[in-house]
Design a protein around this nucleic acid. Structure first.
Lengths: 216, 216
DNA sequence: GGTGAACCGTACCGTACGGTTCGGGCGGTG
DNA sequence: CACCGCCCGAACCGTACGGTACGGTTCACC
């Protein structure tokens, strides 16, 4: 029994499921279908036709439809990469620039069509299946990012650039200042306005306010 | 043709669809089914059985299943009531208390099981049906609340208690400070931790930070 | 008492989709 | 060449659900 849904859900978050190239191509097709038409558009027959594979292979690789959905989530999560923080706490200037870059990358990920599609999918399934998808997205997505953010903020605190008691709390404020209600509006199908599409200036404004609250 | 889905979607947001008492009972049953089991749990046959009505009546009242979903959204939106702001800008103390109460009410609504269920439903449908549900939720829910908030904040500015350029921008910051990532986590099926369930203290912290940024 | 509207309960139909099975093609290996 | 594993394409099955039709009941009104 190869990489089935069960393995994905229970494996360590940092252990990549290592889909074969062929499987990754299929998962990319599945993701495209999801982005275009939502969950209803991702049928096993439709995916088999689009990806030129047989339904038999889909069931062999992913177990069942839920396993396929979980695999899509895991696959896209593995595609997301954040800029590394190679010693970016040199001085106040570069640290703040680094924080801004982090926020901009966060906005870029959360507002991307693929992320929105998978969030929509997971949210739609969150009260069924013992909520495997939602947990998967939280563990492989949000928690990874939040961990990265906390270490970054704590590094700033150690260098006397920031002041806060709880890094998680500080990160949540930064998140709120940056995202506001844009994420939920996009999830509901609303369109971002011009200002909200300028991720760089959005990030700078958020960081500016964050420093007003937590700057040393 | 009575209050069909089409009427609901195109009618003015402030024109209540005026469901009959019998229909409201049925819609309440539908909402309960949604809260308990998500969209999949709301089948026409299941609702007819639960609410002791006939499918024929459902289709007569609401047109089709989409119309039923839209009616549930409209019904629950009409149930949400915010505390009135009867001259609450008397002095700085009571105004700030009023802002805090508003934020607490906002948290209470957004984190309620019915609101979460309807947001999940609308988000899950947001890339189908020309996105009627999402727009409905935005217009009847978020926009109403945001309008209330803006007038409140502008009243505070007129009285010299707050300082900002754009009321919408200020409200978004207040929203972000209060909600952070809790909403999306709850939508994904995560549970709120102890601190996040204390809506009052959450609201006070958010307002405290909001005043640091926008207090006069 | 008669009439008609509203409604309930149930049976029914068509379809879409998840999941299985089968025949056949293709490439590697002894 | 024979065998075998992997896979494609297509046909097939069972079921769940949206939507419709119909007989029977209640009740208001004349």
């Amino acid at each position: 029994m190869p990489a089935t849904a069960f393995d994905i859900a229970t494996s360590r978050p940092d252990a990549a499921p290592e889909f074969s190239p062929r499987q990754q191509v299929v998962l990319q097709h599945a993701l495209t279908l999801l982005v275009e038409g939502g969950e209803k558009a991702l049928t096993t027959a439709g995916l088999a036709r689009t990806a030129s594979c047989s339904k038999e292979s889909l069931y062999k690789w992913f177990g069942d439809r839920d396993g396929l959905l979980a695999a899509v989530v895991a696959y896209q999560a593995s595609q997301v990469q954040f800029p590394s923080e190679a010693g970016a706490t040199a001085d106040a200037e570069t640290f703040r620039a680094h924080v801004t870059a982090f926020v901009e990358a966060l906005l870029g990920v959360l507002f991307s069509e693929s992320s929105l599609a998978l969030n929509r999918l997971s949210i739609g399934q969150s009260n069924t299946n013992s909520n495997r998808l939602g947990q998967l997205l939280l563990v492989r997505g949000k928690n990874m990012i939040s961990a990265r953010a906390r270490t970054m903020l704590e590094s700033g605190r150690r260098h006397g650039l920031l002041k806060f008691d709880d890094a998680e709390d500080a990160y949540q404020v930064l998140y709120g200042l940056a995202i506001r209600d844009v994420h939920i509006r996009l999830l509901l199908g609303d369109a971002a306005n011009a200002a909200e599409q300028d991720l760089n200036s959005q990030a700078e404004t958020a960081v500016e306010r964050f420093y007003q609250l937590f700057g040393a």
